[in-house]
Design a protein around this nucleic acid. Structure first.
Lengths: 229, 229
DNA sequence: GATATGGTGATCGTATACGATATCGTACTT
DNA sequence: AAGTACGATATCGTATACGATCACCATATC
């Protein structure tokens, strides 16, 4: 029996990704294959495979004959990701809606209650984790695997970006919790897919708006995209 | 000077993808790394990298210690891809809309005219190629690279699927050309993004509907998703 | 002082070799 | 005859080695 059931390539992938998401490797950090391999105790080949995969998923950039660096994370990139998520998560939630049962709603409502508590104790870290859990309940039933995959990628990317760029926007979290409750009400009442999609999109767009409103006007002017439409 | 400027890994990727899209490797075909490497004149390492990349993009399936096969292409997969495209292409087109100028419209209209001719001479191959060109004009201006990338992947996937599963649906092509003209009118008149998105979605959904209507009622019942909403 | 040029080192790209694993056929047992 | 155990073979997974390429810096030249 090998030490782990997964291949070294996959373990390398998970380990590096973990470090990026957790902030162990900050954006701009130079990833040298040989060094990574030594740290992990593997050869460079599986490490290289892991790095290429992470590149394909947008976590790192890779230049031929030069090397890899943890992906840069400018505000534009954050906007791109949020906008993409608003679209694919909106669709995933709409497609999930008919498959969401009362027990799912109840669970989501419990999570949302816990988020409300986090507001009072000011625990943004737990708040963020619960936020993912809440939305997972809403979109995980999406029967289209491609769309679900895109949603997962978006959340991953967001996590990578947030750890370094995202500043907690004071008033926003409270609004977010309220919007969650409104979303649950829609689902309970069997709202049609189009309405659910719009609400899910608007929810994310509102977060983005709050982020943009935080910046100076000139920063906002540089944003090339309207956050929602 | 090397024979090509691209790395062997990339050339292998392009070559294998080409063969899949062109029908040289049909679905279910067993891809053996060593054999591919020999055929290409490369070593297995870059070939392996290419294969993993194609796997990530959905063109082939890969099982550990077993091997790779060209991705299976059942009707459900076609439906997933069409549904995903209706969403991301709709968004891409809506985001492109404000950036599309008169010269783009004119070009698209020319392409559409050529498609109309294809109908009369019954040239489905050229029709399909022109169809991509038409839609490219509509979505290529999309300023969000993530969304654009998802659209490209969808089209690629569709091309791979179509070469083996898609049967030309008789009446549909004519409708499609008419819908194209309607889309162009919307863009010319500066329709708002929401309207454009709905039209682009509906256009693709109509193609999917035509495909589904072609099958027996029992086949349709097995489809797990509503094509549009 | 600025720019061009060559050398040097770090890092990636690929080839080859070998070990690990799954699959399939065959023989044996019940 | 059916099922199971076992071994042979094909194929993948990883390690190691070396060649190729690029960035950097020192030096020379204008």
């Amino acid at each position: 029996m090998s030490p782990e059931t997964a291949s070294k390539s996959e373990r390398a992938y998970a380990a590096i990704k973990e470090k990026i998401l957790g902030g162990g490797y900050t954006p701009g950090y130079r990833l040298v294959l040989a060094k990574l391999a030594e740290d992990l105790g593997f050869s460079v080949v599986p490490v290289r495979e892991a790095v290429r995969r992470l590149e394909a998923e947008g976590f790192i950039t890779f230049e031929r004959n030069v090397g890899a660096t943890v992906a840069g994370i400018d505000p534009t990139e954050y906007l791109y990701t949020m906008q993409t998520l608003s679209i694919v998560e909106g669709a995933a939630t709409a497609l999930s809606a008919p498959l969401i049962g009362p027990e799912d709603i109840a669970r989501a409502r419990g999570v949302n209650a816990a988020m409300r508590e986090c507001l009072e104790h000011f625990d943004p870290v737990r708040f963020t984790a619960l936020n993912l859990e809440f939305h997972s309940v809403l979109f995980e039933n999406c029967p289209n695997p491609h769309i679900l995959d895109m949603v997962h990628r978006g959340w991953n990317r967001l996590q990578a970006l947030r750890s370094s760029t995202f500043n907690y926007v004071p008033g926003r979290a409270k609004e977010s919790v309220a919007e969650h409750e409104a979303l649950l009400k829609l689902l309970e009442n069997g709202a049609d897919a189009d309405t659910v999609e719009r609400a899910a999109r608007a929810h994310r767009a509102a977060t983005l708006d709050a982020y943009l409103a935080r910046g100076t006007p000139e920063q906002q002017a540089r944003m090339p995209l309207s956050p929602t439409y």
